[in-house]
Design a binder for these strands. Sequence first.
DNA 1: GCGGATCAC
DNA 2: TATGGTGATCCGC
Length: 619
Amino acid sequence: MKAGLAKDQTEINKIIAEASKGSKFYENEKRKDKELTERIAKILKVRDDILREADIAKAEHSADALLTKMEEQRDLTQIIVHVDMDAFYASVELLDDPSLAGKPFAVGHGVVSTASYAARKFGVRSGMAEFVAKKLCPELIVISTHFVRYMELSKQIMDIFRRYDPTMCAAGCDEGYLNITKYCEEHLLTADDCVQEMRETVHRETKLTVSAGIAPNKMLAKICSDRNKPNGQFALEFSPAAVKAFMHDLSIRKIPGVGRVNERLLESIGIKTCGDIYTHRATLALMDRYFGLHFLLQTYLGIASNVVEPGQREERKSIGSERTFHTLSTKEDILRKLEEVAADLSEDMERTGWTGKTVTLKYKLDTYQVFTRAKSFDRWISTKKDDLFATGKELLLPELPLRLRLIGLRVTKLKDLRAEADKPGSIKRFFESAGSSPRKKRRLDEEGQKERDDNDEPRLTQDGYEDAMPGFYEHEDAEREELERGGLAETDDNGDTAPTSKLSSTAGPSRAKAPPPLEPFASSSHSVSPQKQGNVKVHSTLAPTPPPEEREPAAEEHICPICARKLATDNAGLNAHVDYCLSRSAIREAQQAGGNAPAVLKPLVLGASTGAKRKRRKG
DNA sequence: GCGGATCAC
DNA sequence: TATGGTGATCCGC
């Protein structure tokens, strides 16, 4: 058992399984697990067929030749550092409320974003449903998120990192990659001392702790940063032998790009550690299409990109918006949600200056199955809400009736409308001249600074609450591996070790898979007036929909300085809204920074013909 | 170009 | 009772 765990891992797994059992979510996980099991069975059959006739020695030779070539390209000249804040959100909350010290608490609601280390001892993990977390740890304190605060600190921290590498690459709001080669040279510092100093500086200036990994490339650095977490650092020796030794016993799951599915696929052919890659190189060479030989050989050698550069705006490939809600099945309700999403996306696109050519609708059934429908244009699309809404309807209506729990819209094939920034009349100008309340003013100032990056502008959402389940979870550090190995691990979702066979054997008849099982309730209310366009009422479309807690007695009306929307709310409501607007912006910015610069090589593909099961459904 | 899948954060 | 949102990429068709 993992040292420091307050509960036995199998006990944890049992509780999770108990809590999840019978839910639609869990049923969906089982379904996916079963499909994966079947997929693996097919791959194994293919493998057996191939190996029966193949010239193994020859395959090994070709893999070895590749390895030799790769080895020649190994570059150990750059000192790459991956820095990673420890339990970032939780640490910030702790900073702002010292009474939380030592207590098990989690940030987020509905789903855990980040768990304090005390909570982790109970098995609480990010991504875990709150009610499950509470079962694991009844005394768990759940705190709502404060994104504006996180971003404030994130910016501060990133600025510190940039002193060591001005072109450092932020990967999310709480981690990043640096190349400190130059800094170390100029300051006559060893990498270890440099990173030590950097971490101390962060702690001194923010009272937050950060862990770091030092290695010759980004992949290795990232893995190393996890090694001595929290509040520690780990440096890998810069020699081919040391790197290879490091990789040899490393679980492939530690490799960025290898998630649960790929872990299971690889495991099915006997690869659990990076060292196993070499053992099975013949199989991999013969089944390159399924497993991606190149990537795996590079991984085996511990070779990856050592290029560190900040993400660029022009690299963005898509922009979208989606939201989850309690299951809806009437056309009216569903269209209302679609319209909200369209409004969100429209606002976002206009504010950040993007258009595109393809619109993709995404929806998730109440069974958790996800589908997408896309439509391309031969022109740049209008970013007006009503036009996005219209396209969305075009894609969605033929699919109804459905019972939905999520709707999203995404635009791709983007065009940057902001080639030259700072046009007169741009939001920025408005932004800088706006502002009235003291609180607002402060925020605006902060935002103003960010502007120099020509980055995203703040973004509007529907209500003034932070509770709309924002951005992302902090990635899990340490311990996760242990958890996932346990059995019905993690969310118990099949995932890693969950006794696959068991799950699938108990699973009922495979549900219809291709088309959304539509058979819900007759969408009784076809009545409908597709309030398509007559409905330009600023109220229902532009104004935030009334939040859960009605604050209708809003005789007051304010204009949000961020999104420029008219808000029927009092001062407190406005402040909450502004906070939310800003947080969305900051989150997006942070994510964008990270998303643009993949930390690793290419994603692993482990493709596997899901084969015949694909079929265009109706119309 | 489309739809499904996987992954990161 | 109950399980996120944004973005990227790859594959097979």
